[in-house]
Simulated assay, not measured.
Amino acid sequence: MTNSPRYADGHWTVESATADLQNRIVERQFQRSDGSQGQLPPAGTLGEQYGLSRQAMNRVIERLKAEGLVETRAGARGATVREWSPLIFLPQQEFDSTPICDADIYTRLVRAAARKGESRIDEVTAMPADTRIQEKLGLRPGEHVAVRRRTNIVDGVPALTDDSFVPLRIVDGTEWMLPQSVERGTNKVLAELGHELVLAIDELRPQMTRDAENRRLALSSSMPAIELISTGFDRADRPVQVTVLTLPSRRNTVVYERRRLTENDGETQK
């Protein structure tokens, strides 16, 4: 173990011990000889290493559990490090024309990867658009947007936040505003309202997760993430929806596919 406390007074805290163990787990310092992940030492042993009480180390382990890094089992002497593969996020699949295209992109990705997934609806509300959303949707100052905030969960671990913004005048009183999942997907609802999304412009920005995202993602502290801001346009070239995703780098890998169109492809699209 690297005995290098993160604070000048030379003492470990619950926060610094959690961050240190996060790094050690990611670096696979607890793996077995066969390469599989192993176990953390018991809380008492870890407490001796970090100069913290058993109770404090139990709090550390609970934070690691909340982040999906470890799991505890009755009778085991230490928490077991979880094997975790990042979700491969493919934004280009939003316009996939497969038979299950009515499902949203997250549902398709989880199905394709044969993983267990669920979406938690955190909030559905209406509010004045902030400056960024107002500009992207071409709204008047003070105009309201409908907002759907959800957290997508993969294999029991909160993997990403997924917040969508649409002009309230388009979806007010429709299923888009229901505080529950829409089985056929909210993009299908927009299409039924005459605003089928046919083009998306994506922006990728590195950032650290913020407090609100940490709470939704069960993170004990901020971590590097990718913010993906996707602006969707309808067939009249009107911006209809802005979706903001926060994808912690340890839990997600963003992959884009680029393809050169042939002359025949161009004819097909006309």
Rank of each mutant, 00 (worst) to 15 (best):
P224C: 12
D265R: 06
R132W: 07
A236M: 11
V198T: 14
D265A: 12
Q49K: 11
G194H: 09
M223I: 12
S85N: 13
K116G: 13
E143V: 04
G142L: 10
V255R: 10
C101K: 12
L46W: 02
V244H: 01
F89Y: 04
Y256V: 02
I226Q: 05
N252Y: 01
S33M: 13
S16P: 07
S221A: 15
E257C: 01
N152K: 03
R259L: 12
N252M: 08
L46T: 01
R111L: 15
Q93F: 07
E227Q: 09
I121S: 03
E15K: 12
A113E: 15
G156C: 12
D130K: 10
T243M: 13
E257M: 08
A225L: 08
Q37S: 10
E196F: 00
R28I: 09
K136I: 03
P248T: 11
D104L: 04
E27G: 06
A43R: 02
A146W: 03
R184V: 00
R205G: 08
T125H: 02
D130V: 04
V14M: 09
L190V: 02
S85D: 10
T161K: 03
S16Q: 09
E267T: 09
R108T: 01
R259F: 13
D20N: 09
R238S: 11
R258Y: 13
T246I: 15
V154E: 03
L46D: 03
K270Y: 09
P42E: 14
G138I: 04
A114W: 11
N152H: 01
V147N: 00
E94A: 10
E175S: 09
E263D: 14
P167C: 06
R205P: 05
N3F: 11
S222F: 03
P91Q: 05
V60W: 02
L204Q: 01
S230R: 06
A66C: 08
R111Y: 14
E227F: 05
P5H: 03
N214F: 03
L178N: 13
L190G: 00
V240M: 05
A19C: 09
V157T: 15
E213T: 00
S4Q: 14
R59F: 11
L190Q: 01
T131G: 00
Q55V: 15
